[in-house]
Each structure stands twice: as C-alpha cells, then as structure tokens.
Design a protein around this nucleic acid. Structure first.
Lengths: 210, 210
DNA sequence: CGTTAGAATGAATGATCATTCATTCTAGGT
DNA sequence: ACCTAGAATGAATGATCATTCATTCTAACG
C-alpha cells in the first residue's frame, strides 16, 4: 500500500515579475521568523512552496535577493509616509499630522513581522554599505518631505524658535525609537501608548495644532 | 634563505576571565566590521591574535560567545546611564539631565563601532528570544531609573500634565532613534546636532530646567 | 494537435564554518 | 631545576549552505 499520495503539486509557470514578488515576500517572512543571519535560500524557496534553485534563477545570488527585499521594504514604508505628507485627503495641516502619526504607528507598519525585517537590515547597515545607501536614500526623501510639512505648520501657527529640519529629524528619530521599543519591549509599551507619546511630542512643538 | 622569520609569537597563558574579556572585545570588533551575520569564529580568534579553537574552549559554542558579548555591551551602556542618573556628581537635577544627555550622545557611546554592535543585536531580537530577554531586562532597569529622575524633575518644577513614565519612554525612544540616524545617515546629522535635538526635547518638557 | 522556448526542478558540487581533540607548551609549585 | 595541571594550538571532521545545470515540464503559438 502506498503512503497517502501527496497531492503532487502541478508545476506552475508565472511571469518573472510575479515570481520575484512572491520570492521577496517569502524572504520577508523568513527574515521575520528566523532572522537575517540564519535565513537560507532553501528556507525562502520552501516558504514560497517552490523548488530549491528557483531563487538563484530569478535573483542570481542570495546577496541580490536580500538587496531587492530591502529595496521593497524601504520603498513600501517610505512611500506610504510620503504619500500621506503630500496627500490631498487631508488638506488641513492638523489632520495631515495626525494621519501621518496613525500611519507610522498603525496596524500596517507596527506588525511584528514588518518591524523585525526593518531592524534586521538596520543591524547590518554598519557593515554593508549597500544597505546603507538604499536606506539612506529613502530616508533623505522622507526627511525632506517631513521638513516641508513642519515648515508649513510653523508658518501657519506662527511658532517661533523652531527649526523645521531639526524638529523633523527629532520626530523621525522618536518614531524609529518607538518602533524599536514595540519590538524589543512590547510588554512595556502598547501601540496606543506609542501613539500618545508621538502625539505629545507634536503637541509640545505645535500646541495650536494638536 | 629562509623567508623573513616571523617573530614566532610565544604562547601566553592568562587567567580565564581575562581571555574571555579579550575574546568578547574581539567579537565586538568583528561584528562592527563585518556584521553579526558574517562574523565567524575564526575571524574572532584571529582578531584576538589567538588560535582557532580558543573561543570554543572558553565559551563552548558560538551561540554562547554571542550571548555573552551582548550581555557585556548591554551592561556597559545601561550601567553607564544608570550610574549618571543615580550619580552624586550632579546633585542638581538640571545638571543631571544634561550629564545624561552628554553621556548618551557623547564620544563613548556614539562611536560607529558601538552603535553597529548595538543595532546588529537589536536586528536579531525579533528572531531570538534570548537576545530579547537580555536587552529588555536592562532596558526596564534603565527605564525605571529614568522615570524616577523625570518624576523628581516634575515635582521640583511643578510641571503639570506630564506623565513621567510616558515621557521617559519617549525620551529613551528619541535617543535610540538618534543613534540609529547617526549610524544610518551620518551625513545628515552631526553629534552636535543630535545633542541639540535631545536638549530641545527636554526643554519643551521641562522649560524651567533646561 | 504538435512544437518549442524557456520556466521550474532538485540532485550534485564545492565552499565555508563551527566544533573537536590529540598534541604542545607554559608557569606555578616543590 | 624538575614536574605537572591545565591552557593553548591547529589540523581534521562533519555539517550546512549557496550555487549550478542536466533534465523535466508547461503553455503559448502555429
């Protein structure tokens, strides 16, 4: 008697772009679960439900796969922010600040999986100039946008003694630090609380807006 | 003719504790230079100028070595903070706040090497519960101390509407975020500027003290 | 329906690494 | 000066991995 027949998955052929996307998502899942250091090509392809050589076929090397995955994650996060800061949904500056905060500390971004991947790459930035370049390019873009938004708020509120560039760096640092706290000491900090802390920061800077 | 005789380093025997210390420092150097992911036992022992098997002799496994290294780094950083917060050198609360800020963003802590190691471990926290436990234990201790310090400042300054616990989390997050920015986008942020941003945060919360 | 370009597979290869342990050497005790 | 416990060495081992490529299979097209 044969062992219960495995359904013998039929081989499926997809457009290159779609396979690449699928592999990148599998990579994210593996990094979150096992860490960047111990994620192997086999783990990634197994997670994607595909055969061993497929990731090399589409990305040539592991190095490439990891780089593209970082690009994807960085773009997703920073584009989300930038879209809100430029967004037309909230023409009111106060609302725009609030929307930004809710995005940065909201369900989508603060998933454990997302934050794990994010910091896994940050952790290697010190040793891998390529990662640094990818991340810092997006960081700069978001920082400029945030500075512009803060400058508008300062003008509108007639606040004095505030440098929008410095405040933007401080706010961005606060958000990153809160993500880290949510990842490392989740028992000490709820997402609700993190939002309140972010909001308090903005309120102290822009009391007439928040 | 023989090749220029290598000085043939004489084998040196040291107390266990001293060797362990030496190996931990070599590990830190390697993690900063090559990243946590690609640091090998051979790199560590070569960095220490010792033979291949020595790290296993003293730490049994690589896993152990990395754990002890994290313990060392975490203790160094958090103890430094805690000492200042409890310290007698600055009986004046304002001075104590300033001293803390200068420690957290000063030469010792913001060396690229130190920050690299720090975030390399943070990056693995999502996947390795052991690291999370080590880091979060120290984090909690420092957070309590900071909350206590802030509570004193609030009492002394008669500030209303500030929760010392929340402010402590916010401040700690800001500092972590600034470290990250110094590591990832050093071109956009000088240490001087980081200190000013930290100081501004404290000034907005405690205007009578800073 | 038959052909075929090229997508997907997975066993095989070779490189890299952590770990072991038989051997060598050191330094403190006698 | 000699002995010896145990610290240090480094070649050898076996495990793990990234990568390759001969082969198999799919689906678009004539």
């Amino acid at each position: 008697m044969k062992a219960a027949a495995t359904p013998q998955k039929r081989r499926k052929i997809l457009p290159k772009a779609q396979r690449r996307q699928q592999l990148i998502e599998a990579t994210i899942a593996c990094i979150a679960r096992y860490g960047l250091a111990s994620t192997t090509m086999h783990m990634v392809t197994r997670e994607a439900g595909l055969s061993a050589g497929i990731a090399n076929l589409h990305f040539k090397t592991k190095e490439n796969l990891l780089r593209e995955t970082l690009r994807y994650v960085a773009e997703e996060y920073h584009k989300g922010q930038i879209d809100i800061m430029r967004g037309r949904e909230a023409d009111n500056l106060s609302n725009r600040l609030t929307a930004l905060l809710h995005f940065q500390l909201g369900r989508g971004v603060t998933q454990r999986q997302k934050m794990s991947v994010w910091f896994a790459y940050y952790g290697e930035v010190g040793a891998r100039p390529v990662y640094q370049k990818i991340v810092s390019a997006w960081d700069r873009a978001a920082a400029r946008e945030l500075e512009f938004l803060f400058a508008s708020v300062i003008r509108e509120g007639g606040y004095t003694d505030i440098d929008p560039g410095e405040l933007a760096i401080g706010y961005a640092a606060l958000i990153d630090g809160l993500h880290l706290a949510l990842l490392v000491t989740p028992r000490e900090l709820t997402k609700q609380n993190a939002k309140k802390i972010g909001r308090d920061f903005l309120r102290r800077a822009f009391p007439n807006h928040i």
